[in-house]
Amino acid sequence: MTPSHKSLADTTAEGIIKYIIDNKLKEGAQLPNETTLSSLMGVGRSTLREAIRALVSRNILTVQQGSGIYVCHNTGVADDPLGFIFIENKEKLVADLLEFRMMIEPRVAALAASKATPDQAEELLHLAERVAECYDLGKSHSEADAIFHAKIAEISGNVIVPQLEPLIMHAIDMLIDITHSELKEETIKTHMAIVNAIQKNDPIAAQDAMTLHLIYNRDRLRKANEKSSLNNSHQ
């Protein structure tokens, strides 16, 4: 077989990624302009632009016309990395996503409890309070809820788990859409139980609280699906 060779644009894209890592550029950070970046990479502007287009398609860079080149939010992670939009049976998709969360999130909560600093626990408390505030104001709490769970993933210290954030956010959005946010008291209560366990650095209590939180969601989803099936049978 003929060995494959990377194009100059591919090599340049790798060089840009190395530049981002070496310079510890965070989400939203601006890269040098095209002229400077071309010089740094040792390539012409046409090759640089091809490399940038490739990195944009991989959700690593974003280009804002008239402003510049920036590091993306959730670098390298697409909004729908697993193509859920193409799965027709949304009820099964939500149920399977919840099942996946039950496999992962209780253990993540336990890890977070074993590693959380007082400052991290305090920040998590504020995020839980933000979810409760959204409920009280009658506002959508899906984003605040997802941020709460993402923070637990971050506190866990596992570098893989935070990369699952888009998956968890997708699952939360779809669950709320089906259950119509009818778990206010259960959500607030179990969120606070998770926070309390993490504040006390109690992994077992954190795991149990997260499991209970997801069980409430599973039971509410089951009831919503049963109601939907009943309504469809009467049509």
Rank of each mutant, 00 (worst) to 15 (best):
T2F: 02
V131E: 00
Q120S: 10
F84H: 08
G28M: 07
L125S: 00
A9T: 09
L98T: 09
Y216T: 00
L40P: 02
M41L: 14
Q199L: 12
K200M: 11
C134G: 07
E91A: 13
K90H: 14
R49A: 00
A205F: 02
R218C: 02
S142D: 09
H234V: 15
M1G: 14
A132V: 01
G42V: 03
I17L: 15
L93W: 04
N59E: 11
L175I: 04
K189S: 14
P162I: 00
I17C: 13
A128Y: 03
L137E: 11
Q64E: 15
D177E: 15
C72K: 06
N217H: 15
A109L: 07
D22W: 05
P166K: 09
I147N: 01
P3N: 02
A206S: 05
A144G: 05
Y19R: 04
G66T: 07
Q207T: 03
R130K: 13
H126E: 14
L137R: 12
C72I: 05
T2N: 14
H5A: 15
L40H: 07
E91F: 01
Q163C: 02
D79N: 11
G138Q: 07
S67P: 08
T187I: 08
I168A: 02
I87G: 05
L212V: 11
H126G: 10
S156I: 10
N217S: 13
K115S: 05
R45S: 13
N225I: 15
L48E: 08
E88I: 08
G157R: 02
M192W: 00
K90Y: 08
M1V: 04
A144I: 02
C134H: 11
S114R: 04
A224T: 02
L137I: 10
G28A: 02
M41A: 09
R218I: 01
A224C: 06
Q65Y: 15
D119C: 03
S67H: 12
A150V: 08
Q65V: 13
T211S: 14
C72Q: 12
I85R: 14
G28Q: 04
Q64F: 13
M192N: 09
V71I: 10
E129I: 04
N196S: 12
Q207V: 02
E105M: 12
P106N: 00
A13V: 01
T179K: 02
H191L: 05
L125E: 10
H170S: 13
M169A: 13
A197I: 06
L61R: 10
I69T: 02
F100M: 15
I20K: 03
G42H: 07
L98N: 11
G44I: 06
T117G: 03
A113R: 06
E122N: 12
K184C: 06
Q235F: 11
R220V: 11
E122D: 13
I155R: 08
N158P: 05
M1P: 15
Y70A: 03
H213E: 06
